[in-house]
Structure formats: structure tokens, C-alpha cells
Write a protein that binds this DNA or RNA. Structure first.
Lengths: 108, 108
DNA sequence: TTAACTGCAAATGGTTTGCTCTGTC
DNA sequence: GACAGAGCAAACCATTTGCAGTTAA
């Protein structure tokens, strides 16, 4: 689940007819401050969010835009490798894979 | 060099006093279409651009915001590995390393 | 005279913020 | 009454776009 603020709003709107986007964003930012939610930057005009805060890589389908969590171990050795090569202090890294997901591949 | 549109504008403004941001963005997008420039998404409120279109990884300094091209080989085997694990078609990947650059480390 | 490109200003759209109001302790 | 949270609408700000003017072939 990697919803946009938009989607969260429309999901909640049925149960809370007075809900406003301001409230959605305000609470998302509170959750982000608390470390319960992360903002995903994947090169779009809008943000998407996720509640899975354990480190993981992402696969992004270039056909349908789906963002999928990858169940692969984080390769910490990459940080050390770059740190050795560059002398920068490397604390973390992010990997995004791009391609076509199963659903899009099978449908066409 | 990973300038924001803003920076490009102010650099050119001296030589072209009538330059407008619209023109900067318009031409950046033309260069992107032509594959001569790439837009960098690094999780900010604004975009940055680069003319180095050969595949490479980025290091981003969390202290000063600098984006630095890494002179490391692209590990194509990562794509194959993910493709085998997931069955998604993986065509490319992006890695960003985060930490503290030399300048900030030495001055900090 | 077209076609390409520009400046300018207005529009766009996701996100943030100010202010007021409501409910709870 | 104080305070936290909410709704609403306006503000924000990077980016895009429409339009009219300019230049060059």
C-alpha cells in the first residue's frame, strides 16, 4: 500500500464527510515526524506514502505506476563500498528498480 | 553540476536580462525530450537537472544538499537478481547514497 | 509568411498554513 | 477555561501554459 494523499482522502471521505485535505496532510506529516509513515519520492508530481517503515527496496512499474515493496535483504556492504571509494560518510542508500510488473506483463 | 531551474535562470540572467523562468523550463524540457538532460528526483520541493546522461549513481549530502556523481560501475546484475526473485521485468535501477560529503565532514 | 522561439503573466496543482470552531478534560 | 484537533479557505511555490510579439530563413 503506497497511497497518495488524494487516495487516503477519498477512502476516508465516506466515513467522515467533513474531512478536508488539510487534515489529511496535517496528520500524514505528524505520522512522518513520529516515524510511523514515510514519504516516497519516486519522481512524480505528487507524493506517495507508506506505513512499512522497515528498510526495503522498491520496484516501480513503468506501465501502471504501481510501487511494490521488494522482499530482499538490504545490502549494507554497498554503503561501506562507496565510503571506501569516495571517503564520504555513507549512512544509507536507496534503490528503486524500474520495469513492468506481473499484472501489466500478463495483460499486455 | 546538478543545478535547479532557479540557478540556471540566475546564471543566464546577466547575459540575457529579459530571460524568464518559462523559457528556462521550456528549454529544459526540450533537452530532456532529446535525452541531453535528465531530471533528478531526490526528494525535494523542486527539481534539479544534470547533463551527465551516462548511467551513474548519486551521493547526496544530507548536510549541504550537494548531489555528487559517483564514479562507480553500474551493477547490472542487480536487475537480473530482482527479476529472478520477483518475476517482474526489470529494465533498470537507481541507487542514491546518503551521508555527509568531504567538505561538510571536514568543516563540521 | 511561415515557423520557431521568446517574454510575460496567468493558470495549475499538490501541499501548507492561518483562523476559527468544536469537543473534551 | 485550556487545549488539541478539525474544517475551511486562502496562501504557497515550483512548474506549465496561453498568447502576443520578435526574429530568421
Amino acid at each position: 500500500m503506497h497511497p497518495a494523499a488524494d487516495w487516503i482522502y477519498s477512502q476516508l471521505k465516506d466515513d467522515f464527510p467533513n474531512l478536508s485535505m488539510g487534515t489529511v496532510y496535517r496528520n500524514l506529516n505528524i505520522l512522518i515526524e513520529q516515524g510511523l509513515v514515510k514519504k516516497i519520492d519516486f519522481g512524480s508530481t505528487f507524493d506517495r506514502f507508506e506505513a512499512n517503515i522497515t528498510p526495503h527496496y522498491h520496484f516501480i512499474c513503468e506501465s501502471c505506476g504501481a510501487i511494490i515493496d521488494l522482499d530482499l535483504p538490504i545490502d549494507e556492504s554497498l554503503n561501506e563500498h562507496v565510503q571506501k571509494e569516495t571517503s564520504y560518510l555513507v549512512s544509507r542508500h536507496k534503490i528503486e528498480y524500474f520495469g513492468v510488473c506481473d499484472r501489466c506483463r500478463l495483460s499486455g
